[in-house]
Design a protein around this nucleic acid. Structure first.
Length: 304
DNA sequence: AGCCAGGCACCGC
DNA sequence: GCGGTGCATGGC
């Protein structure tokens, strides 16, 4: 069965392709303007179709709330984009061009592992590595639904649970081409299991700074990986993951303002200046701004 | 062939 | 703190 919604400020294509999600695939269709994707999260799968503002989520009743939250469909993105767009022309353009992006609320453990894998890798490679993990340590599941009057069926691998991943040795992980990230994964999984790193009862009520410090106790998790995990996995929308692309576009657009704000020569701008400025300038919307800017910069190759 | 990729740890200062 | 370097692997 499916549930149909009319949703503004949403593009399933942009939301999945913008670089926050690594487990999805296009479902080819003959119909014009119809976009269909299979999306995987944790041990679940869903088929989503979109034609203009008409969005259909193909799942059973008891999973609907999970996917509505996952795609962040309950939030007023028009308001967010408006608030960002009035700040300057650059943001206005990025928000307009990438206006269908929504911040997915993905599984915390999955985000932690995925973004440890992401370091010094390009997005297509990250997808392959994640897929390797799922194939080797996840469970096969069948997803079935009715789609356009016929039955649709696909087998997929779940994202492995910590206990399943804990069976992997460093050597086995290296065979999956994760390279120097192998020991990072082992430690992350160990800390999740032994120290309850992601236990809801423990992290509930912690500040963003406390959560970030907690994640960064893992070797292989620095500021950027931690912030991606906080943003995409824990819904901490005020963080501003700063990678090469974000650095490029921030300098391209705001170099002069940042230099003036902090009284440093342009060539002396450091990451902490960019982070501080983003926090001040974008405020609680920093995470949204980051994703619009990141996707826009990468698409237009800004600063490269 | 060399450089870079949604970085990070480690080292020397 | 700050800058430089090595790191697995793959694509251009």
């Amino acid at each position: 069965m499916f549930f149909e919604y009319i949703i503004k400020d949403f593009s399933i294509q942009q939301t999945l392709e913008c670089g926050q999600c690594f487990r999805f695939q296009v479902v080819p269709t003959a119909e014009k303007e119809l976009e269909v994707y299979l999306v995987f999260s944790g041990n679940l799968a869903v088929l989503v179709s979109q034609k203009r503002e008409r969005v259909r989520i193909y799942c059973e009743n008891d999973q609907l709330s999970y996917w509505v939250r996952y795609f962040d469909l309950g939030r007023d993105y028009g308001k967010i984009k408006k608030e960002l767009s009035i700040k300057d022309k650059f943001l206005e353009e990025a928000c307009s061009d990438k206006g269908g992006v929504r911040l997915l609320q993905q599984e915390p453990f999955e985000m932690l592992i995925t973004f440890i894998l992401s370091q010094n890798k390009q997005i297509p490679h990250i997808k392959i590595l994640v897929q390797n993990l799922c194939k080797n340590y996840g469970n096969v599941t069948i997803y079935r639904t009715e789609f356009l009057g016929q039955s649709f069926e696909v087998a997929y691998y779940s994202f492995p649970k910590p206990e399943a991943l804990s069976l992997a040795t460093e050597a086995e992980l290296r065979q999956l081409k994760v390279g120097f990230r192998a020991p990072y994964l082992v430690e992350a999984v160990r800390k999740v299991i032994d120290e309850g790193l992601l236990d809801t009862s423990i992290i509930h009520g912690m500040t963003v700074e406390q959560l970030r410090d907690r994640m960064m106790t893992i070797k292989g998790v620095g500021r950027k990986v931690a912030d991606c995990m906080l943003l995409f996995g824990l819904g901490k929308f005020e963080v501003f993951p700063t990678d090469v692309w974000v650095r490029r576009i921030m300098l391209f657009y705001y170099e002069d303002i940042i230099a003036a704000t902090y009284g440093v020569p342009k060539e002396n701008i450091k990451d902490h200046h960019i982070l501080s400025f983003a926090c001040y300038y974008f405020g609680t919307l920093a995470g949204f701004a980051q994703q619009y800017l990141f996707y826009y910069a990468r698409d237009k190759k800004i600063g490269k």
